[in-house]
Amino acid sequence: MHKFILKEYSLLSDTQHSQLLEIRNMDYVRAQSLSHSIISIDEHLKWVKGLQHDSNRLFLALIKDEKILGGINLFNIDERAKWGIFLAESNSLIVKSLLPIFFIDFIFKNYSINRLYADIRVENTNAISYNKNLGFQLLHQDSELVLMGLEKEKFLDAKSSKILSRIIKKFALYNFSIER
């Protein structure tokens, strides 16, 4: 069984913050992020402090065997809840597939959210396709961004689809848990 922990940013050590930031600042992550800028450790730690008493945002680091592998997040919870993800390239495709399913399932079960949104860069066709397979539908597009939305019922339908149900079987070998 492969075990992964999702840990709130506010609970990470300084070393773990550095590892997380290293991934976040990688060229391939920044290219797909809404903000392309490199974040300094001081900026990052100052921003993390602001998360501590903010119930409107949830930022989790993906950890396996004490190593940071990326981050997944939910923000704007009280209004138009949005999710985001960034992962180190070294993560296997199975982890990249299972983690979003686990996280979105967690969101719909634990928050009073009936619709989840995602902002994706128009050139990130892989992410657009990936979100579509999770049940997201295209809502709006401009020259830079695509806005996609996922209703809770659509996610439940998507989980029953052949595409996702084959992947969901893999949860038998992969375990994700959240530390808050």
Binding site: L93, I94, S97, A127, S129, Y130, I163, L164, R166, K169
Partner: peptide
């Protein structure tokens, strides 16, 4: 995309298992 590929691989595992009567993990 990565989801579609993992789904494809999982489907191929099942088909290979059925055809050759052997359990195989490709993914």
């Amino acid at each position: 995309d990565s989801l579609a590929l993992v789904s494809l691989i999982a489907d191929i595992e099942d088909r290979i298992s059925e055809e050759f009567e052997i359990d195989i993990v490709i993914a």
